[in-house]
């Protein structure tokens, strides 16, 4: 029951979605629409589960006083503050349990949840992703010292694409014939060899997804049931 019923549910849901694509008439179209809206709701609960699981993990680390537990406490507190502001006063146009919190919003200029989002979350995210600019330089260096045809090609193309998309690339090659202009070379690379590579990846991945989907629907792939 614990294994056969989930497999049966997955099979029926999968077959129904496939049938509704090939027979776009009632009852299939209606059933697949219902299933899609249910999927959205369950996926919402899955996201909530993910956040709760993360919170549980952090709480366990703090209670067991594991290494660096103080930092996990910071995660719990920041979660709690953001969560409370969101639940009590809402976000953007949505009201929370205590309404929109006009008094607080007038004081700080926006809802507390949005204030933290704009002044903390967005800055942390941008700073975190901008760190990659530094690591990309070291990755490029490592690729250069590999000295293989592939790595040289990868780096040459990336340099050409970057220069072709900046004003300095155009300025550097302004005096050359049009076919040697860096923006034109960059556009050619993007339009043809790059598209060819991307297309091969997309078709390959698409075939892979189709194979995996079939395995899941037919119950051949069962690792999601817990390895049984």
């Amino acid at each position: 029951m614990k294994y056969k019923l989930p497999l049966l549910i997955a099979f029926c849901a999968g077959i129904l979605m496939i049938l509704s694509e090939f027979i776009p008439r009632r009852p299939f179209s209606q059933l697949s629409g219902t299933l899609e809206s249910w999927f959205l709701i369950i996926a919402g609960f899955a996201i909530v589960l993910g956040q709760l699981s993360l919170l549980k993990l952090n709480i366990m680390k703090v209670f067991s006083k594991s290494e660096n537990w103080q930092y996990h406490l910071a995660a719990i507190i920041s979660f709690a503050v953001m969560f409370l502001f969101g639940i009590l006063f809402g976000m953007q146009r949505q009201a929370g349990l205590l309404g929109h919190g006009e008094m607080l919003s007038n004081l700080i200029g926006s809802k507390p949840f949005d204030y933290i989002f704009i002044n903390l979350y967005q800055h942390l995210m941008a700073a975190m992703f901008s760190l990659l600019a530094f690591f990309i330089a070291s990755a490029a260096y490592r690729a250069f010292i590999a000295r293989s045809l592939e790595s040289t090609l990868l780096l040459s193309v990336s340099v050409l694409v970057m220069l072709g998309n900046t004003s300095i690339g155009a300025a550097m090659t302004n005096s050359l014939p049009a076919y040697l202009h860096l923006p034109n070379i960059s556009a050619f690379i993007m339009d043809f060899p790059n598209t060819a590579g991307q297309r091969a990846i997309i078709i390959g991945a698409g075939l892979g997804v189709i194979g995996s989907s079939l395995r899941l629907i037919l119950g051949i792939e069962r690792s999601w049931l817990g390895g049984k």
């Binding site: 497999l7 999968g14 299933l35």
Partner: peptide
């Protein structure tokens, strides 16, 4: 199971 089946289909 429902999510996997729907997504796979």
């Amino acid at each position: 199971a429902l999510m996997i089946g729907t997504t796979a289909g």
